[in-house]
Design a protein around this nucleic acid. Sequence first.
DNA 1: TCTTAATGTAATCGGTGATTACATTCGCGG
DNA 2: CCGCGAATGTAATCACCGATTACATTAAGA
Lengths: 215, 215
Amino acid sequence: MPTRQTSKPRSRRTAEARPYHHGNLRRVLIDAALQLATEGAEVSVREAARRAAVSPGAPFRHFPNREALMAAVAEEAQRRFRAEIEAALREAPASPLDRFRAYGLAYLRWAMRNPAHFEIISTGRYFAHGSSEELTRDNAELIGLSEQMLADAAAQGLLRPADLKRIQIAGRALVYGFARMNLDGHFPRWSVEASEIERMAEGVIDLFIAGIAKP
Amino acid sequence: MPTRQTSKPRSRRTAEARPYHHGNLRRVLIDAALQLATEGAEVSVREAARRAAVSPGAPFRHFPNREALMAAVAEEAQRRFRAEIEAALREAPASPLDRFRAYGLAYLRWAMRNPAHFEIISTGRYFAHGSSEELTRDNAELIGLSEQMLADAAAQGLLRPADLKRIQIAGRALVYGFARMNLDGHFPRWSVEASEIERMAEGVIDLFIAGIAKP
DNA sequence: TCTTAATGTAATCGGTGATTACATTCGCGG
DNA sequence: CCGCGAATGTAATCACCGATTACATTAAGA
C-alpha cells in the first residue's frame, strides 16, 4: 500500500446508506431553503446544507453563492404562484372586471397563505433584481394579463374614464400593499382569524373595482 | 513600579483629542446607522462602531443588541416621517378629501425620498414588531389622523356609500404598496426620473380619491 | 478499463453579533 | 479635595455565516 496517510479513505459501507454522491442535492437544497423560509427562519446556506446532511461547502457546487440559491428558490415559488393564479383564472367568469377581481383574489390568497415565499419573490432583498430571466418573464406575463383585462373592460365600456396605466399601477399597488402589510405585521389585532383578513382583502378589491367601474 | 504588565495604560495625551469617554456615543451610533442605511449598505453594529471610531463592543453599552439599535434608528426615522406629514397637513386646505390627498402625497414623497428609513420603519425585519412603545404610538396616531379625515368626509356627505374601515385600509394598502414597490425595485424602466414616479404617485392617489368620492 | 469531469469534504479566511474581564473616567458624597 | 462606585470604553474571545481552496470520491463515457 503506497503512501496513503491522509484521512481515512476506506469507503465506509456501514449502516449509512447515503452514497458519496447525493444524486439530487440541488433540488433538495432548494426544498430545504423553501422549508426554512416557511418556518420563518433566516435562510442560510449552511442550514440548508445541514438539512441535506451534507458538508457546508457542498451547496456551492450547485450555486455560485447564496444569492443564486435564493434566486432558485424564488423561481420555484413564482412558478407555484403563477400556476395558482392561472388556475383561478381558468374557472373565472368571462367578464373582464370579474376576471380582474378573481385575479386579485387569487393573488392575495396565495400571498397570505405563503407569506415567506411571497416575500422572497417580491422583495429583491435576497438576490439581485432581474438576476433571474425566468422570474422577470413570469412576472411580466402576469402583469400583461392584468393589463389585458383592463383593456378589455375599457373596450366594453365598463370603466369610468381614466388612464389605464394609472389604474393598472394603482391596482398593483393596492394588492401588493395589502399583501405586504400582512407580511410586515401591520394587521395585529383582528388577524387572529386568517379568514378575517381574507374577507377584508376581498372587500378591498371590491372597493377598488367599484371605484374604477362605470356606475 | 509594581506589577503592571498589562497593555500600555499610560493615558496617551498625544495629538488624539478624543477622550476615553465619547460623551455622545448613543446618538452618534444612531446617526451612523441611519447614514449606513441611507447609503444602501447593510447596517452592522461593527460598522457603526467603526464610524464612531470606537471599539466593536462599545455599542453594546448603549444597546443590548443589534435589534435595539435598529429600533432606535426606526424611532428617529419615524419622528421625521411624522413631522413631515404633520407639516404638510398644517398648510393643507380644510376640505377633508383635500387633506386626505395631501396626507397621501406627503407620505409617498417622504417614503420615496427616504427609502432606507421607510424600509426600517415599516418592515419589522430589523427589530421585533411592537418592540418600541414610541413607534407604535406614533404610528397609531398617524392612522387615527387618516380615519378622522375619512369620518369628516363622510359626515359632510362627500363619499359614496361604503364601509369607512374598508376605505381606510384600502387607502393604506394603496399608499404602502406604492412605496414598497418603489423600495423593492418594481419600477425599473421609467424610474430614471424620480419626479416621474412622484407624478405617478399623485395620479394614483387622485384615482383612489375619485373612486371613493361622490360623483 | 481507465481517464476525466462532476460532486462532496475538510480546512480555512474574513466578517458579524454577542459576551466577558478589564481599564479608564465621571460624578457625587464625605 | 478626595476617593469610591457607577458608567463607559477596550481587548479578547466565541459561535455562526458566506465563501474559497485543495483534496477525496465517484459516475460516466471513450
